[in-house]
Amino acid sequence: MSVLESMRSFMRRDQVFDFLIPDVPPNLDLTHGVILYLENLNVSFDGFKAINDLNLYIDDGELRCIIGPNGAGKTTMMDIITGKTKPDSGSAWFGQEINLLDMDEPEIATAGIGRKFQKPTVFEQHRVIDNLELAMAGDKRVWPTLTAHLNSAEQDRINEILKIINLEEHFSRRAGSLSHGQKQWLEIGMLLMQNPKLLLVDEPAAGMTHQEMDQTAELLTSLAGTHSVVVVEHDMDFVRSIANKVTVLHQGSVLAEGTMDEIQNNQQVIEVYLGE
């Protein structure tokens, strides 16, 4: 009878109990070609509006530069996308399905958003390859991490990234002993190890020599296409060398958007930059 049936449905081998289904966010859905939607965001600290009705859309595979004077809300915007700061109102979606505001930093990182900080933050006590190994995409739960061992595929992946970030010779050096520019690269390398779909890169050219800067620009442009890249930068030459689309932030909202040339001739932008 139905008892037997319900027993059977209860014991079905091809299904697990609901509570055993891991709580994974839905897959990244890019059907509309837009990877990041920020809509009507507002954040205020102690009455100061750091983000004021911000709307920003990033397309899949795009390389976008964001510029703006100090206090324009660039870092705060990144904090919101990566889950570090929760906005007072507004919405932030990653693709069509993933609501970033419901997730914490690790969940957002695993969902496919990597972030490089303004100040290079690498694990200075660890070797370069350890830094990359720790950042590698994979099972990030506690027990699997305890028993994890590098297999050859993973080893190859690390070598590949080492090559991309020009640190092949330094693989066993302690990260703390790298130069400032090398640390920046290592951090970008760590982002790449995560296999992100969207990279948020905060001031990648700071403290770099011209040669290093060129290499960084080359690296970022090569990443675009397969990844979406958002670069926040102050150095206009650097921005010009990589960007085809630039967004100007001012007082927490978007002031102008367009190609570098358009931006440079925009009257409002000139006022903001030169008027102060």
Partner: peptide
């Protein structure tokens, strides 16, 4: 173990560990 190296990483740069996708509080 990798977990142990992650521990020292947490000790030195807790935020970075979060942003590479580990649940620091669980570790």
């Amino acid at each position: 173990s990798r977990l142990g190296r992650l521990c020292t990483a947490i000790r030195d740069q807790e935020d970075r560990v979060r942003f590479i996708g580990f649940k620091v509080e669980n570790i």
